[in-house]
């Protein structure tokens, strides 16, 4: 018989709430799904009796497409919802919105929301499995999983690797989830960026701040370049984009100064010429498009493992 393993949680709300074993199980399952999505017919019937609602209260292209594709390749029924065109604008509460959708017999909810903790709140108030697809500046667990999965694929293992996350750490849910995931898998993590964009208590996470990009690059095996999130810049965190580019933009010249080849990642969407130049983003060292491909496999694995815990037939 095959071994029986399952996730320790019923929802994926953040990397903080899952164990290293959970992450490894998701990776092993994603390995198999990666093979599936490279077949001539990229679809399996596993979730043909599962209905999934994608609730996006905040804009997203990549993550939403990736989730939708993952759901469809597992044969789930999918309903999409975006806040811009919904009754949320008419003043409906989150719990009401979701319960209305659940009364249409939805088993699983994938949600992106501008408020940190929205997924956790929902998981306590509605009867469905919740997958957090990004909640404010809190967590974005599937992004962290696909990032770590891509490092594992490129470098063989995550344990023992040195990863620097560069850019706007303060507003970044990708950074927080990445820090949790990488540390659980045994990597060491530094963050790099303007001190105005560093969270106050970052040291409590066991993460060192390195304000100098060149020193950070010399130290690391992997550099994860975050996007400058102009839409979240409610203050002047740095004097000008030009100055940010000079200090924290990754370009070919900086890479060539290193006497080693590092792996470059970016969660997308890229501001070309700001945090990363085009020649670097399109180079062989960048695994940005692999990250996107792995995103579908990781999300298939997460949905498959969570769905297997929903018992409809007891």
């Amino acid at each position: 018989m095959n071994k029986m393993k399952e996730l320790s949680v019923n929802h994926l709300l953040g990397i903080k709430y899952i164990s290293e074993e959970d992450i490894q199980l998701i990776f092993e399952t994603a390995d198999h799904f990666k093979e599936v999505i490279n077949r001539p017919i990229k679809k399996v019937p596993s979730l043909r009796d599962v209905t999934i609602a994608n609730l996006f209260f905040e804009n997203s292209t990549r993550t939403r497409l990736s989730f939708e594709l993952a759901e469809k390749r597992l044969s789930a029924d999918v309903v999409n919802f975006s806040a811009a065109s919904s009754s949320v604008k008419k003043g409906e509460t989150l719990v009401d919105t979701v319960n209305n959708i659940l009364s249409m017999k939805v088993d699983l909810v994938v949600m992106r929301h501008p408020n940190p903790g929205a997924g956790i709140f929902l998981s306590k108030n509605v009867n469905a499995s919740i997958v957090n697809a990004g909640d404010g500046a809190h967590e974005h667990p599937t992004q962290a999983l696909l990032d770590a999965f891509s490092i594992r694929e490129k470098l063989g293992d995550v344990a023992g690797k040195k990863v620097v996350i560069v850019g706007d750490i303060l507003h970044s849910r990708v950074a927080l989830s990445n820090i949790f995931a990488l540390q659980k898998l045994g990597a060491s993590v530094k963050v790099c960026g303007p001190l105005t964009l560093m969270p106050k208590h970052i040291a409590h996470l066991g993460v060192e701040v390195e304000p100098n990009l060149d020193r950070a690059l010399a130290w690391c095996d992997v550099a994860n370049m975050l996007r400058v999130q102009n839409e979240r810049m409610d203050n002047s965190y740095f004097p000008s984009t030009r100055e940010y580019v000079q200090q924290y933009g990754l370009n070919l010249e900086r890479l060539q100064k290193l006497n080693k080849e590092i792996t470059i990642m970016h969660p997308g969407p890229i501001n070309r010429g700001v945090e990363i130049t085009s020649d670097v983003a399109d180079s062989n060292q960048a695994i940005i498009l692999n990250q996107v491909e792995n995103g579908v496999a990781i999300r298939m694995a997460v949905l498959y493992l969570l769905a297997s815990k929903i018992k409809n037939y007891d």
């Binding site: 095959n2 029986m4 769905a307 297997s308 018992k311 409809n312 007891d314």
Partner: peptide
């Protein structure tokens, strides 16, 4: 989802 156990691939 009927057998009450998760099967590993």
């Amino acid at each position: 989802r009927r057998s009450g156990k998760v099967l590993e691939a």
